[in-house]
Design a binder for these strands. Structure first.
Length: 548
DNA sequence: CGATGGGTTGAGTCC
DNA sequence: GGGACTCAACCCATC
């Protein structure tokens, strides 16, 4: 009898999942997509889940706040004699300084929708406040569960958290199952395909890797049969329903205009996706080209705005991929990665793989990909940027949109990121990344870090003399400044001629527009043309002197 | 190893 | 109005 190594399995095209750092054959689970795999699995590994005796099972939801195409949920329902759907509100995240209002609201809406779906099966989402290891220990003492299922996560905090949980559960004798479901591919499978090589840092190389690996797994089609949850099952555990945001400690009194047009939840996600794939009988999908979308179009935005749903797992990225593929297959002429919609999913996958494999991906120090640039910090400039008080209307409108909506078009993110870092203010991308992480409803750890490095020319991108102008760039898309007028009412009556540079307006024009510079709206904190020239010179120094 | 070609999405100018 | 060229000469992957 020959037992294939993990690597050989992967090269055979099988999707093998297991624990993060322990791949002994006894804990390998093969996704039984074909009867052949099922056969091999049962014969050699005795680890087909059907061979596991049923027992009380906890499914710990973190991302993947959905019922459809949820491998973890499918596995859990197969294992469960009784199923506890659990969500832990970790105090690490309950902090308005770290997770902004809109971001938290969006996640709670996703939880609420999941709860509603579970209720159709006479189950519900059990919400418990507390540090995860402690909460799971307490649950174990009350529920005495045999299995814990959760989805692989990739950011540094989550990986450390999950490691601690796995260790503790092992001590308690609970068998843990980790499934992949948040990315197109199981990232460990992609790592296996790297053959020990370092991961690609350019899109073209990544696409070659993907071509080797083949298309991602299809979404799960069968609906899970979720076992009911009864009051006596919960026992003495203190559980709550999905809270409203104002019930969360620290968020009680935050007054935020609820202008965000995006509501969280799986139902919203699926509806939105259907609108995308059906738009213009599929023509919209196959002609989509990211660089041609408009950062200033608001109603509707020029992109899909599915990212927040994918980020929370309210929408399965695999389902979206295959729905797009279905549309693409009906057309002979279509846009291609990296600019197509599927290309956008590849960007996400690419950055997830990098975040998973590159140490300290979210910072400058000890990050082998990140160029160390001698950024300087000016508190007043940084604050002006964050608060939308730079005196550059497009920047300020964008930062206002960030706070009010929790979402910006990709190119808008480029412009404000460039402005904060190499373009104007010469402040570290790490500072900007934190702000995005706090406010964006689609704030995604790997993708956020990668794009900030990209825009600041710290990695991936090096043409530092290409600097976004906060005046000329938006003018191209929105000559009348409707975007600015929407988010900055103070400039609503400014003539189009001066909408992106109001400091040039004669005093009479300012008076007529009811907007006096220095009183109603700030003067620019820096002179863009000067800063741009100065910073390009600094960049030349950085790129010439490799020791910097 | 050194040469080569490519890089999702700037801005201004010229025709 | 749109395409080509230039700015200055980068990194990275590949062969």
């Amino acid at each position: 009898m020959t037992i294939l190594s993990l690597h050989q399995w992967r090269r055979c095209g099988f999707h093998v999942t297991g624990f993060y750092d322990n791949y002994s054959p006894s804990c390998i689970i093969l996704r039984t997509t074909t009867s052949l795999v099922s056969h091999i699995c049962e014969k050699y590994f005795h680890m087909n889940t059907r061979a596991c005796p049923k027992g009380p099972t906890v499914i710990w939801f973190r991302k993947s706040l959905r019922i459809h195409d949820n491998p973890t949920l499918q596995l859990a329902t197969q294992l469960a004699s009784q199923l506890y759907p659990l969500f832990i509100l970790d105090p690490y995240y309950i902090n308005p300084e770290k997770i902004g209002f809109q971001r938290f609201r969006f996640m709670l809406e996703c939880m609420k929708d999941l709860d509603n779906s579970l209720r159709k099966y006479n189950s519900s989402l059990l919400v418990i406040y507390g540090e995860p290891v402690t909460v799971l220990e307490n649950c174990y003492r009350t529920w005495n569960f045999s299995y814990l299922c959760f989805e692989k996560d990739t950011d540094i905090y989550s990986r450390n958290r999950d490691k601690k949980v796995l260790e503790r559960m092992k001590e308690l004798g609970v068998q843990c199952f980790l499934e992949s479901g948040h990315t197109l591919y199981d990232l460990d499978v992609l790592v296996g395909w790297l053959n020990g090589k370092s991961p690609p840092t350019q899109m073209t190389s990544f696409l070659k890797l993907i071509e080797q690996v083949g298309p991602p797994p299809k979404p799960i089609e069968i609906t899970c049969n979720i076992p009911p949850l009864t009051i006596d099952m919960i026992g003495s555990m203190k559980v709550s329903n999905v809270p409203e945001i104002h019930e969360i400690p620290g968020y009680e009194f935050i007054a935020v205009p609820t202008t965000c047009p995006f509501q969280g939840g799986e139902s919203q996600a699926l509806e939105r996706m259907q609108q995308v794939v059906k738009r213009e009988q599929g023509n919209w999908v196959v002609t989509f080209s990211k660089p041609n979308t408009s950062p200033t179009s608001l109603n509707p935005p020029s992109t899909t705005v599915l990212s927040p749903y994918i980020k929370c797992g309210a929408l399965s990225v695999r389902l979206f991929f295959w729905e797009l593929k279905k549309v693409e297959d009906c057309f002979s002429v279509k846009t291609k990665p990296p600019v197509s919609l599927i290309g956008q999913l590849y960007w996400r996958e690419h950055f997830y793989l990098l975040g998973y494999t590159i140490p300290h991906f979210d910072r400058i120090q000890d990050n082998p990909l990140c160029k160390s640039i001698p950024w300087e910090y000016r508190q007043d400039w940084f604050q002006a940027w964050e608060e939308g008080q730079t005196g550059y209307p497009f920047i300020d409108a964008a930062m206002t949109q960030l706070k009010q909506w929790g979402w910006l078009h990709h190119l808008t993110r480029h412009v404000v990121a460039c402005f904060l870092t190499r373009g104007d203010l010469w402040i570290s991308w790490e500072k900007g990344k934190e702000v995005f992480e706090k406010y964006l409803i689609d704030g995604d750890w790997s993708i956020n870090a990668a794009n900030w490095m990209w825009l600041s020319c710290s990695a991936f991108f090096t043409r530092y003399f290409r600097v976004y102008s906060p005046v000329a760039f938006p003018k191209k898309y929105d000559p009348h400044g409707n975007f600015v007028r929407y988010f900055l009412p103070v400039l609503r009556n400014m003539p189009s001629k001066y909408i992106y540079e109001p400091w040039k307006a004669p005093l009479k024009v300012q008076k007529d527009a009811n907007c006096i510079l220095g009183k109603d709206y700030p003067f620019p904190i820096v002179n863009h043309e000067e800063m741009k020239k100065r910073n390009i010179q600094k960049m030349i120094q950085v790129f010439q002197n490799k020791s910097l």
